[in-house]
Computed example of a mutant assay.
Amino acid sequence: MTDSPKRLAFIGTPELSVPFMKTLCESGYEIGLVVTGEDRRRGRGEEPSPSPVKRVAIEMELPVTHKVEDVENFEIDLAVVVAYGSFIPIELLERVQMINVHFSLLPRWRGPAPIERAILAGDTKSGVCVMEVGNEFDVGGVFSRQEVEILARDTTETLRDRLIEAGCELLVSTLDNGLGEPTPQEGEIVWAEKIIPREREIEWELEAEKIDRLVRIGGAWTTFAGKRFKIWKAEATSQEIKGQPGQLVGDQVATGKGSLRLIEVQSQNRARQAFDSWKLGARLEENCVFGDG
């Protein structure tokens, strides 16, 4: 497709998909159908509620379906996929052209967790690709890409926000200019597997910088007094403090190299709070150690 498409189907589910849907409408593209995930319970005991994309689509008076096959029943030029979260049948891809917005510089970090994996790896740059949807995840050719710097203190949330902003601009400019022919992905293929809870457990024998990266992707945890203890905000320092890895000295924890200064924490069944506030109420003994099982 070389001409700029005007009537689109939008396929997405979570909150990060919403800005793309809004931007397309604001940029003059007509969305003839929105496909999104099924309504589901968002919390314990709650009634099923719509996905963020469905909620906003209804507010915008756009037609919504949960069946991706329905795109064939509407006159559209192209389907735009942003974090749909479900499999799209290969047979449908053969009949309806689809493009996808992916948050990495492909082929590095194919898969569901490219932002978190880039931060964990200590990458200095990430980016956004507008790509064709292929018969396997994230293997299609790339129509356009935009690099985004990863800043030293970036978290999953701050980096995601900048990638969304860059991605919205890239998507619209790519559509405005006409898709043209995609470029095959070249370079080392690296997979961004989903982060599982076990990976978020802090190993205090690692250097402080690596632990800090884990904290910055969100949900990093250790144990304290036999209970799970989350660290939401911290800062790596080069200061070497006496004590075994995991030992708390003041507001810093000894690691394999350097130390980690704690800023915001959360003890089990408690709300997040400043480390100093937690420490005041914790009645700590000397030589406290995190990661005690």
Rank of each mutant, 00 (worst) to 15 (best):
S4C: 07
P5S: 06
K6P: 02
A9S: 13
F10T: 08
G12T: 00
E15I: 06
S17K: 04
V18I: 07
P19H: 04
C25A: 09
E26T: 10
G28C: 13
L33G: 04
G37F: 04
E38W: 06
G43Q: 08
G45S: 00
E46V: 07
P48G: 10
P50Y: 13
S51I: 08
A57L: 00
A57I: 05
I58W: 03
I58M: 06
I58V: 09
I58K: 11
M60R: 11
E61D: 12
V64C: 08
K67H: 11
V68E: 02
D70F: 08
V71Y: 06
V82L: 00
A83Y: 04
S86L: 10
S86D: 12
F87T: 14
E91W: 05
R95S: 12
M98F: 13
M98N: 09
N100T: 12
F103W: 15
S104P: 05
S104L: 08
L105R: 11
R108H: 15
R117T: 08
R117Q: 14
A118W: 09
D123F: 13
D123H: 11
K125T: 13
V128D: 15
V130S: 02
V130T: 08
V130A: 03
M131L: 09
E136I: 04
V139S: 12
G140R: 02
G141C: 12
F143H: 05
R145I: 00
I150N: 04
D154I: 06
R162S: 12
L170A: 07
V172M: 10
T174R: 06
L175R: 01
L179I: 04
G180F: 08
I189N: 13
V190A: 03
V190T: 13
W191M: 14
A192H: 06
I196M: 01
P197E: 00
E199A: 15
E203V: 11
W204Q: 00
L206K: 15
E207I: 01
E207H: 01
K210S: 03
I211A: 00
D212H: 04
R213H: 03
G218W: 04
G226E: 12
K227H: 14
K230T: 15
I231A: 01
W232F: 10
K233D: 14
S238D: 03
P245T: 04
G246V: 07
G246I: 03
Q247E: 14
V249H: 02
G250H: 03
G250F: 05
G256C: 10
L260W: 02
L260G: 03
L260A: 04
L262A: 12
E264I: 08
S267A: 13
N269Y: 10
R270Q: 10
K279F: 09
E286T: 10
D292A: 11
